[in-house]
Amino acid sequence: MRFTLRIWRQAQQETTGRFVDFAVEDIPAEMSLLELLDSINRGLILESADPVAFDHDCREGICGMCSLVINGRPHGPGAGTTTCQLYMRSFADGETIVVEPFRADAFPVVKDLIVDRSAFDRIIAAGGYVTVTTGQTPEANDILVAKENAEEAMDAAACIGCGACVAACKNASAMLFVAAKVSHLSLLPQGQPEKSRRVLTMVREMDQSGFGNCSNEAECEAVCPKEISIGHIARMNRQYLFAMLLSGERS
């Protein structure tokens, strides 16, 4: 197959970037897009040019490291997959494929297609956990969890923290990421004692990180590689309101 890749190149956070076209030929349909980037990079290395920097690691859709907006869609065409699970057979022969970094001011570009997603770590640090220390635990089966709650918690906990939700949202909102963690823990008995505090601190950190507001357009849900539902955002909205109006949490 034959393609033109229009790739965003940007030397540093401060510099302005631009698109650079790479024409490639004889590409097997079974090749993944990241392998195509590898092969473009190999060509650049042989010319002693600077290879295209992009994030990737496990290449099986679970680590959340790969990003990229491909033809206007985070993680490219196809539902429930990450960029590393995208194969060239998903594109038409001769197609021009536009590859951009995730764009959000809370995710500044580091170099080329790499962005800084450390805001997500800060949000988790603000409260995305059960405060329990090692050893301070009852026997596992002393905590009963209804099967449907465990399943729904798992749906939310499947989040890989890739940031596609932010990239897809027209407001660059991080609501789906935050809601996935808030919802996961609030569905389990272990998460109850600090339920109110958690939603308040995590949302505060989210707001301070410069993400936009949710417009309920559900683009996040549509691109989420783990297909996490915006129903979790509704749950977080509800919890936030209750926490603010009724909980005993004080600053």
Binding site: Y129, V132, T134, T137, I143, L144, V145, A146, A157, Q190
Partner: peptide
């Protein structure tokens, strides 16, 4: 065994039976 206790307490959503047990 302590590991399972620890992970459950952290909120790891292990698979459950209908009775709520692991």
């Amino acid at each position: 065994n302590n590991i399972i206790d620890q992970c459950v307490a952290q909120g790891v959503p292990f698979a459950r039976e209908y009775g709520g047990y692991l």
